[in-house]
């Protein structure tokens, strides 16, 4: 059902990783993604995997949560792996029927699959350990240099926060409208593709109407509370860059150096 979709997938826990400065966590995630893309052989990739596992252990988020987030992207992993399997050539080759598989193809396929898995898991650590609102606040702070180019970073961050906030509300709304139309005999399950798309109109129109109404109401409520944009706003919760953050940053920096060295001394696979 639609309510199974989790986007703000925060996992409540009080770990070191949860308490890190959210800005730092974004930076660390960018670093680890860069690390994953720099890996040129399996050893380097294994090292990155180790770094990720250590981070997970520190975060106290159970492993099964990460398997859950991987489940939905299995088709993408398989698709990439299979494409690489057949399109990369080099090394020994085996052919049967019209298909050709090369030794290098197998390596690349496995390598790519691992790479995607690590990317997903690494970014999941960020979303599991950081509340969405903290995340948008951090993005606002990190992007604040863009103010020089007259980009209203605060508005962007506020938009993201509001969008996240309204996901559950809209899901509820969709369920309500769907039930109401079902009670009038709407049929969402049967019929041709065109019929099914058409059957969504009675849900989408009321949803849009009420979303606009909600947006107006929200805008009114915000201006009633004297919201005028980001200028001069202070925060109740200040973000602090502490010793933990420096430690985490150092750990990632050392690992990154190791990845570069492993790349250099053990050769490139791809």
């Amino acid at each position: 059902m639609i309510s199974d979709i989790t986007i703000g997938q925060y996992y409540k826990e009080n770990s070191v990783v949860h308490r890190l400065d959210p800005r730092n966590k974004i930076i660390l995630t960018v670093i680890i993604i860069a690390m994953i893309f720099c890996c040129k052989n399996f050893l380097a990739l294994a090292l990155v995997a180790a770094v990720i596992i250590v981070s997970i252990l520190f975060s106290k988020v159970p492993m099964k949560m990460f398997f859950k987030s991987l489940k939905s992207i299995i088709p993408i992993i398989l698709f990439t792996a299979i494409l690489n399997l057949f399109y990369v050539s080099g090394g020994k080759e085996w052919s049967f029927w019209i298909l050709k598989i090369s030794e290098k193809g197998i390596y690349t396929a496995v390598f790519m699959a691992f790479r995607i898995i690590l990317l997903i898991v690494a970014s999941s650590i960020l979303t599991y350990t950081t509340v969405p609102t903290m995340l948008t606040d951090a993005i606002e702070k990190l992007l604040s240099p863009l103010k020089v180019f007259k980009i209203s970073v605060h508005s962007l961050a506020m938009m993201m926060t509001l969008a996240l906030r309204f996901i559950p509300t809209l899901i509820e709304e969709i369920e309500r409208i769907t039930n109401a139309q079902k009670a009038r005999g709407a049929d969402f399950e049967n019929g041709s593709l065109i019929d099914r798309v058409k059957s969504l109109i009675p849900v989408l129109v009321p949803l849009f109407v009420s979303s606009f109404k909600r947006a107006y109401d929200l805008a009114f409520a915000m201006s009633c509370r004297c919201y005028t944009g980001g200028d001069g706003r202070t925060r109740m919760k200040q973000m602090k860059f502490g010793i933990k953050d420096i430690g985490a940053l150092a750990f990632y920096a050392v690992s990154f150096t190791a990845v570069i060295l492993l790349n250099k001394y053990f050769g490139a696979l791809i």
Binding site: R176, I177, N179, A180, Q181, K182, A183, R184, G185, D187, I201, P202, V205, P206, V209, S210
Partner: peptide
């Protein structure tokens, strides 16, 4: 089940939000 829904008509709370035509 659809025939049941035609025989038992439910009008939910705030039904004005289901108008669409």
């Amino acid at each position: 089940i659809r025939d049941v829904r035609f025989k038992v008509g439910i009008c939910f709370q705030y039904p004005e939000y289901q108008l669409f035509e």
